[in-house]
Every structure is written in C-alpha cells, then in structure tokens.
Simulated assay, not measured.
Amino acid sequence: MTVHIKVYSDYVCPFCFIGKAAFEEAIKGKDVDVEWMPFELRPSPSPQLDPVNDPSKQYMWQTSIQPMADKLGVEINFPNVSPHPYTGLAFEGFHFAKEFDKGHEYNTRVFQAFFQEGQNIGDIDILTKLAEEVGLDGASFKSALESRTYQDVQR
C-alpha cells in the first residue's frame, strides 16, 4: 500500500535542506509517493534575513545547523547570498517543473544551488539555468516566470 506524504519546505531553510536528505534516505526503496509543497517562510514584504550581517544567525549556523549537517553527512555551506532572496519566484518555477514531471529534480537542484554553490535563487536567469540543467526548456521556463504564469498557483 502506497504511503502518501506531503513535504512542506522553503529553499532558504537549512533545516529543510538537511531534512530532505535524511527523509529521502529513509524512504528509499519504499512504496512512498511524495508531494513537495512550496512554503515560503518569509514572503514579501516580510523583512529578508541577512545572516552575513547577523551574529545570532552565524552562531546558530555554527552551533546547530553545521553540526547537524555533519552528523547526517550533508554537504552544506553558510549561504553568502545576503539578504536571503524571497523564494516565491523559485517556487513558481517549481510549479512549472512539476507540470513536466521534473518537480523533484528541480527542488533538489535549487536547494543545491543555494546551500552548496551560493547562487542567488531569487534571480530569474539563475533559476532558468537551473531549470535547463534538470532538462526543462529554458525559454519556456523563463517566459513563465517573467509573465508570472504560476503566481496564483503559488499563492
């Protein structure tokens, strides 16, 4: 019997990135259907986090996030994209990717881009490059983001 699980996450949440790896390992080889649910923790116009200039965020990274990632074997880097981008546009890209059965691949690539490569996932050109890397048509993807085709779906 297939187990259906909804996973709510945000691309700029380090706990979501770390948990994603542990979760995927736990369900490997099991009859599980996963539905990724975009959840923007701080949507516009909420203030953006600026961890590079916030000693409390750096302390939390050093004492909580990095040790947890190390323990679970997850490669993660302190994100130097600061302030953190809003992720609504990246999630609109997820909805596009999901239509073409590339939602999981897109999620993984966006998380990696932010937490392993320090890329600004709030930038349409970067998101388009990431979409192409997972096999999506870049021109169609970029057009959908520019025209905000998935804005209502994301809301």
Rank of each mutant, 00 (worst) to 15 (best):
F23V: 03
W61A: 05
R42H: 11
E75V: 10
P45Q: 08
H84L: 13
L41T: 05
V81N: 01
R42G: 07
F91D: 01
K20V: 05
E75K: 13
M37C: 13
D33T: 11
Q48R: 15
S82T: 09
L72G: 05
T87I: 09
V52H: 02
L41S: 05
N80S: 10
R42T: 07
F78M: 02
A22P: 13
D31I: 11
M68A: 15
Q66A: 12
K30C: 05
A21H: 15
W36N: 00
E24T: 04
P67W: 08
W61S: 06
L41N: 01
Y59P: 07
E24A: 05
D33C: 12
E35N: 13
D50M: 09
D54A: 14
F91I: 07
V74C: 01
A26K: 14
M37A: 08
V74E: 03
K57G: 06
F78N: 04
I76R: 01
Y59D: 13
V74N: 04
H95R: 11
G93P: 04
R42C: 10
K57I: 15
I76Y: 02
Q58C: 02
P83I: 03
V32R: 02
P67V: 08
F91R: 02
I65W: 07
A22W: 15
N53D: 06
I76K: 02
P51E: 05
E75Q: 10
K71I: 09
P38D: 03
D31W: 03
G29K: 12
T63S: 13
G29L: 09
G93Y: 00
P38E: 04
M60Y: 12
G73W: 03
W61Y: 15
E92I: 04
P43R: 04
Q48K: 15
F23D: 07
A90F: 09
P45N: 07
K57S: 15
